[in-house]
């Protein structure tokens, strides 16, 4: 029962963030409500309502997903992972969903210079989906992140 309550509360909070009238429009997200519902239908089952994911099935988005934008190859990686590239949404809605998820789950790592994904870019990237090599590619990108952050610390 606690899990249910948490889930419902999580969904409610997300709705408030995504659909608040006074909220700033997110770049590359023309319809935040549609993006949120697409997230619920296509992603949330594994990545969970709050984007924390799980070790067994889907890596976390929360405080993580936008870090990929900062390393070489990371931007294409998040559009080419199987769950994104092969989901049955058209290019425009998939681009919107990715932009929405980046701002929703990892605002702290979003650069002001971020260029939102466009339908054209998504169409190009999803034509070459990652398959089993996704784990290896992700490991490599994580290592790159660590390297690039080390000198700054």
């Amino acid at each position: 029962m606690l899990a249910v309550a948490t889930m419902v509360a999580g969904a409610g909070a997300m709705a408030a963030v995504g659909e608040g009238k006074g909220a700033q429009p997110l770049p590359g997200v023309s319809d935040p409500r549609q993006a949120h519902i697409d997230y619920m239908l296509k992603c949330q089952g594994c990545h969970r309502p709050d984007g924390t994911g799980s070790a067994e099935s889907a890596p976390p988005l929360r405080n993580m997903v936008a870090r990929f934008l900062g390393v070489e190859g990371g931007r294409s990686f998040i559009a080419r992972v199987p769950g994104v590239a092969m989901t049955d949404l058209d290019d425009r809605r998939l681009a919107q969903l990715l932009n929405w998820a980046l701002y929703r789950f990892d605002p702290d790592h979003m650069s002001p210079a971020f260029q939102p994904f466009t339908a054209e870019e998504i169409a190009r990237l999803r034509a070459q989906p990652l398959r089993l090599e996704r784990i290896e590619v992700r490991e490599r990108l994580l290592a790159r992140m660590e390297q690039e952050q080390a000198p700054g610390k």
């Binding site: 029962m1 249910v4 089952g45 969970r48």
Partner: peptide, 17 residues
């Protein structure tokens, strides 16, 4: 919307409409 006593609800789910 709730599990039988003694079981735990999975947070990873199958979603449809």
């Amino acid at each position: 919307s709730s599990c039988p006593p003694g079981t735990e609800m999975s947070p990873i789910t199958w979603i449809g409409t």
